[in-house]
Design a protein around this nucleic acid. Structure first.
Length: 658
DNA sequence: TCACGGAATATTTTT
DNA sequence: TATTCCGTGA
């Protein structure tokens, strides 16, 4: 028996852990020194365990500031910490929490001086990165013929994969994109130039955040020790979705006396496409010798018939930690597999069921419709609107990615970082009569002055501004003249941008509404830098066009969500749509065993979201335009499961109504 | 050098 | 079904 367990008897805890947790959970929560791996099955109280552990450590007298909770989204960590605060007291809120990316961002800015870097970098998202790559390829590789050369998007996928999997770019090409092998040289040249440009313009993409943090920790051992000493207790949630660099960062952060707790479920690893490697979780005990392993196998979420099905689904995975989930929630309805005669028949069936449930008194926010890809819900959305059912859509294309939002942000970004070439281009090209060439000249002239964004104002003589450019100069004069709050700055930018959006888009009223929404978000920030970082790192997850007006938020909404965005959540009733072989699994995953396994886990994640009722549906016959195939089989992940586990139904009565 | 129109080309999930 | 790219005319 170790010291800690002896103390356990003496200390009087304010929280009654024995009563609130099961044996395995208590073991995890009261674990103190060393490395701990918690293999937590779906619905086994993973979040609960992490939350109680934070509270427990604080009760033990650990200073909350020395606890670091790394999660998959910042929302998740904020929620856990606030739950811990409610359990114990608000000391728990002082623990540090966030994603690997947000932690990297904060750390790099804080220690910028010490590492000889700059703190006024801008974080660029995927589409920013794409336009940068686009600029470069035009300059250095204009002679490459279009055909047979990867698009910007693909180029970025290659670069990013190389970083996230810690393997050279060439190798990624040979392994995953053999058809581009002939273009290795120009691709490498573009990559090199891309890395240079980012440095020049003080831009960091998502991968750079992790890379830079990793490099700093690795190369500057004094600083590493300092940071490691600051965070004596580290917890990582969703460990199955970390990649190699994140695992390395964790190792370096943990220091020589690692107190690290990793929680995850290899069966729920669904982010391989961005370099996540579920084998990380298998390797954890090797990296931290002497790791204690605890399994949480009791499922508190789902009724037995649902769990029977999900156990059957994950049985088909070939590589996993063996675990057997069980539940005490016996009884309940057998999950249903529903074939409908068409896509619209599927939508109508779903809406009918939802209306029926709602009429029986079920709140709409207890129901979710989940799907593999964002566009799978288009037809359903039309049907829901027609029947007047309130819904929110999560995942897929986002609010923040729409052109008008990015336009406004570009103006703010050059204020924060005048070297941000992407944003200069973006905002200059909005102006009439200014194209790439003029934008380049103006950008260069601004940079040459090294007077920040306000350098633009002094260019009157050189560039003989037209009306549009004149207005932009006036805008920057206003911003330059006096200090402003984030929201005030947003307001003057939107005032400036108003005429542009009216001219550019027919649907400008809707877009102007979005900008209002953006303003109300800005209102919550005191520093422009923090606002911009957050917009890149954790933008509002609600899809575009579905931004809620404040009056709407009280009302319960049906949830439509991609499965990826549904991770960690649960509902009373869950519908999984488009469980059609070729859609789910996606047609593009069919020729790779690893991809198929990932899709299988995705189906598992979707099905384990349900507490009481689960419906899986697919349209009976769909012609796939892309491949020319006729898709007419249910998803292989649920096909062939006996009727007593998954009840089959065919719904054909909508045929005449379509 | 810019703007516009027609043609070509496709995957999806997110920090 | 959109979006993105290229060539042409002003």
């Amino acid at each position: 028996m170790n010291d800690f367990n002896q103390r356990d008897r003496i200390v009087r805890y304010r929280i009654d852990y024995e009563k609130e947790l099961n044996a395995a959970q208590i073991e995890a929560v009261s674990f103190k020194e060393g490395a701990l791996l918690v293999i937590a099955g779906a619905g086994s109280g993973k979040t609960r365990t992490l939350t109680y552990r934070v509270a427990r450590l604080v009760e033990e007298g650990v200073p909350p500031q020395s606890i670091l909770l790394l999660t998959f989204t910042r929302k998740a960590s904020a929620e856990m910490l606030s739950r811990a605060s409610r359990l114990l007291d608000n000391r728990c809120g002082k623990a540090a929490g966030g994603t690997f990316h947000s932690f990297a961002n904060a750390t790099l800015r804080r220690y910028a001086a010490a590492i000889g870097g700059q703190s006024d970098f801008t974080i660029i998202d995927r589409s920013d990165a794409e336009s940068l790559v686009g600029m470069i390829r035009k300059e250095i590789a204009k002679d490459i013929n279009r055909r047979g050369f990867p698009r910007n998007q693909t180029l970025l996928n290659i670069f990013s994969k190389s970083v996230n999997k810690s393997i050279p770019v060439e190798e990624v090409i040979y392994d995953d994109y053999p058809h581009f092998s002939v273009s290795v040289a120009p691709i490498l040249a573009i990559n090199e130039s891309y890395q240079e440009r980012k440095q020049q313009h003080k831009l960091l993409d998502f991968d750079d955040l992790l890379l830079n943090l990793h490099r700093v920790l690795k190369e500057q051992s004094d600083l590493r020790r300092k940071i490691a000493a600051a965070y004596r207790y580290i917890m990582v949630d969703e460990y199955q979705d970390t990649n190699q660099i994140q695992a390395d960062i964790l190792y370096l952060l943990a220091g020589d006396n690692p107190n690290v707790m990793a929680v995850g479920d290899d069966s729920q690893s669904i982010y391989a496409f961005r370099g996540a490697n579920f084998k990380n979780i298998m390797k954890f005990p090797e990296i931290f010798p002497g790791t204690t392993i605890i399994r949480l196998e009791e499922n508190y979420r789902s009724r037995e018939p649902i769990l029977n099905l999900t156990n059957k689904i994950i049985d088909r995975a070939t590589e996993k930690y063996e675990k057997k989930l069980f539940t005490r929630k016996v009884g309940g309805k057998t999950p249903c597999l529903v074939e409908t005669e068409s896509e619209n028949g599927q939508s109508k069936y779903i809406v009918d069921r939802i209306v029926a449930l709602h009429d029986d008194g079920m709140p709409l926010d207890q129901i979710a419709v989940l799907f593999r890809a964002s566009f799978h819900s288009f037809d359903l959305e039309i049907e829901l609107t027609r029947r007047n059912i309130a819904y929110v859509k999560v995942g897929g294309f986002r609010f923040i990615e729409s052109a008008h939002i990015k336009d406004v942000l570009a103006h703010l970004r050059v204020v924060a970082n005048a070297a941000d070439r992407i944003s200069w281009y973006r905002l200059l090209l909005l102006i009439n009569k200014i194209g790439p060439k003029s934008a380049q000249n103006i950008f260069q002239a601004v940079i040459d002055q090294s007077a920040g964004f306000s350098g633009l104002i002094n260019l009157r003589k050189e560039f003989k501004p037209n009306r549009g450019l004149e207005r932009l100069m006036e805008l920057f004069c206003i911003i330059d003249a006096r200090p402003m709050s984030v929201a005030q700055m947003g307001e003057v930018v939107i005032n400036y941008y108003g005429p542009i959006v009216r001219e550019k888009y027919d649907d400008y009223p809707r877009r102007l509404k979005d900008l209002e929404q953006l303003l109300s978000i800005m209102d919550r920030y005191r520093s422009l830098e923090a606002f911009l970082s957050d917009m890149a790192l954790e933008p509002p997850n609600v899809s575009k066009g579905k931004v809620l007006s404040p009056s709407d938020t009280d009302q319960a909404h049906l949830v439509l969500s991609t499965i990826h965005s549904a991770k960690g959540l649960e509902w009373h009733t869950v519908f999984i749509i488009w469980a059609l072989d070729g859609r789910f699994p996606s047609i593009h995953a069919l020729n790779s065993q690893a991809d198929l396994e990932e899709e299988l886990r995705l189906m598992y994640v979707a099905a384990t979201r349900a507490r009481e009722m689960l419906f899986i549906s697919y349209p009976g016959e769909i012609y796939d335009r892309g491949s020319g195939l006729l898709l007419n089989n249910p998803s292989r992940f649920i096909d062939g499961i006996p009727d007593d586990t998954l009840e089959r139904k065919y719904i054909g009565y909508y045929l005449d109504l379509a």
